[in-house]
Design a protein around this nucleic acid. Structure first.
Lengths: 120, 120
DNA sequence: CAGGATCCAGTGGGATACTG
DNA sequence: CAGTATCCCACTGGATCCTG
C-alpha cells in the first residue's frame, strides 16, 4: 500500500467513490438488492426521486457496470434493471450504511438539538 | 421492521444518509479515523478540498455529533478534530466503502470504456 | 493557524410536457 | 411504460481576500 489512496485527488478510486456521492445511487443500489425491478417500481420505492434523475442515475450505474439493463423489446415497453455481480458487492456495503443510518438517526437528531440549543 | 425505511422520504434515516451524501464527508470521516487531526493536516490529507468546504463539512459533522472539535484556546490557534464514538462507528462502514472503491475502480473503468465504445 | 466574508461558476436536481 | 426535452433555480463548492 502506497501513499496514493482515495484521499489523493489523482487516485482513480476517487472517481469510484464519486459514483455513490450523490444521494440517489446510495438509495437506488440497495433498492435493487431485492431483485430485478422496473422503472416504475423504482420510482415508487425510492421515494422522492424524479423520473429524470432516476434515469440519469441508472444510466451512470449501467455505464460503470454496476447495473444491468434488460430491455424486453416489446410494446408497451418492458425494461428491467438488476444489479451485476459488481453491483451486488457494492450493495452489501451500502446496505450497511443504510442500516447505520436507521440505527443512529435518533442520536444524530439529539446531537443536532443540543448543538443548536448551545449556539442559540 | 415496518415499511418505512431509508427509502421513504419522510423517514428520519434519510436525513442521516444525506449527511454522507456529499463527497467530502465520505473522505473526511475516514481521514479522521487515524486519530485527532488539525485543520491544516486535513487540508493536506484530503486532497482537493478547499478551506471553506472543509470548515463547512466539519461544522456539520460536529453539529450531528460525529466529530468533536477541541479548541485549545491559545495563540496562535490550535484546534483539533477527532471522531466521537458515533463517528467511529460510521467510519468503520465508510472505510469499507473506500476499500471497495480501491478494489474495484479498475473494473469500473473497464466497464466505462466498453460501454462508451459500444455507444459510439 | 483557523476560519470568516464575498463573489461567482457549475451543476444537481425539480416541474412539466411530450414521444415511441 | 419508459423514457426524452426544456426550463430553471438553489445549492455546492472554488478562488480570493481579510481577521483574531
Amino acid at each position: 500500500m502506497n501513499g496514493a489512496s482515495v484521499f489523493s485527488r489523482s487516485c482513480p478510486s476517487r472517481g469510484a467513490l464519486e459514483l455513490v456521492a450523490g444521494k440517489w445511487a446510495l438509495l437506488v443500489i440497495p433498492a435493487l438488492g431485492g431483485g430485478p425491478m422496473r422503472n416504475n417500481e423504482l420510482l415508487r420505492r425510492v421515494d422522492g426521486v424524479s423520473q429524470k434523475v432516476l434515469t440519469q442515475t441508472l444510466r451512470e450505474l449501467e455505464r460503470n457496470g454496476l447495473v444491468v439493463r434488460q430491455d424486453h423489446q416489446v410494446v408497451p415497453p418492458h425494461v428491467e434493471y438488476r444489479l451485476s455481480a459488481l453491483g451486488e458487492s457494492l450493495s452489501a456495503t451500502l446496505v450497511q450504511l443504510d442500516q447505520w443510518a436507521e440505527r443512529h438517526h435518533d442520536a444524530l437528531r439529539q446531537a443536532r438539538e443540543d448543538f443548536d440549543a448551545a449556539s442559540a
